[in-house]
């Protein structure tokens, strides 16, 4: 049964996701180009709609999805989440973040289909941008009302990898709260290195915002990264154990 469902998910849900991304971009591109704004807000709102579409398909491919949000301070924030699957990018939309700038690796910018949207939306290439440039670009994005999304593990390949301190350093410099998000189940559904979409239960949890002021000193960002990772990974491990029981 699992193999049958995996086959169905891979062919039909995966196919539908690719078609959705391709045709929605194709249809929207002329309008986004005609009514382009310097801030990139329109493109980012389009990406939000695309993401919600992808998450509807992920829900259909899953064994159930649980999204647990919490109240958060008004204004922009830095969103950090664990990262083990390509699906993770789209999960942020389910928490109502409509206008986000992703900090991603350079290879994503080289994808022929995605790069148009990514450049127009003002996403930031973490490998090409120096910390000082990133600070400037993120400050501009915040002025345009954006939230900044980081996957501080930097890669999907090691789900236990440490959280790098860059996102937390940035939050401190811009005086923005950090909103941790735990993502469970996407690794089982679509891990790195495969196109097979297995059915899995998805659990998404938003934790209360963490303030950079709570982690003072030169090592504040490093210690904040460690504390946030601990909080997220404890939830991930506990949820996985419960799923296995």
């Amino acid at each position: 049964m699992e193999r049958l469902r995996t086959g169905f998910n891979t062919v039909f849900i995966g196919g539908a996701a690719l078609l959705w991304l391709f045709f929605s971009t194709l249809l929207a591109a002329p309008f986004l180009w005609l009514w382009r704004d310097k801030t990139g807000n329109r493109v980012r709102k389009f990406v939000f709609i695309q993401s919600r579409g992808i998450m509807a398909l992920v829900r259909a491919a899953s064994r159930g999805m649980c999204v647990s949000a919490t109240s958060r301070p008004s204004g922009s924030c830095v969103i950090v989440a664990n990262h083990a699957s390509a699906v993770d990018l789209y999960t942020v939309s389910l928490f109502g973040f409509r206008n986000v700038v992703y900090i991603t690796k350079g290879w994503v910018f080289r994808l022929p289909f995605f790069r148009y949207v990514m450049n127009e939306a003002g996403y930031i290439d973490a490998e090409k941008t120096s910390p000082q440039q990133m600070l400037t670009l993120c400050r501009q994005a915040v002025e345009h009302g954006c939230d900044i999304v980081f996957f501080p593990q930097g890669s999907r390949k090691n789900p236990q990898a440490r959280f790098k301190s860059g996102a937390f350093y940035l939050a401190g410099q811009l005086n923005l709260p950090v909103v941790p998000i735990a993502i469970v189940g996407t690794q089982r559904m679509l891990p790195a290195g495969t196109f097979r979409i297995r059915p899995a239960r998805i659990v998404l949890k938003e934790f209360p915002a963490v303030q950079p002021a709570d982690y003072p000193g030169e090592l504040g960002p490093l210690h904040m990264a460690q504390a946030v990772k601990k909080q997220i990974m404890e939830f991930v491990d506990k949820t996985r154990e419960q799923e296995q029981e």
Partner: peptide, 17 residues
Amino acid sequence: LGLDSLDAVDMVVVLEQ
């Protein structure tokens, strides 16, 4: 070890301490 420029700053502070 995958240490980027910000990690290097952290590493220096950690080793100084």
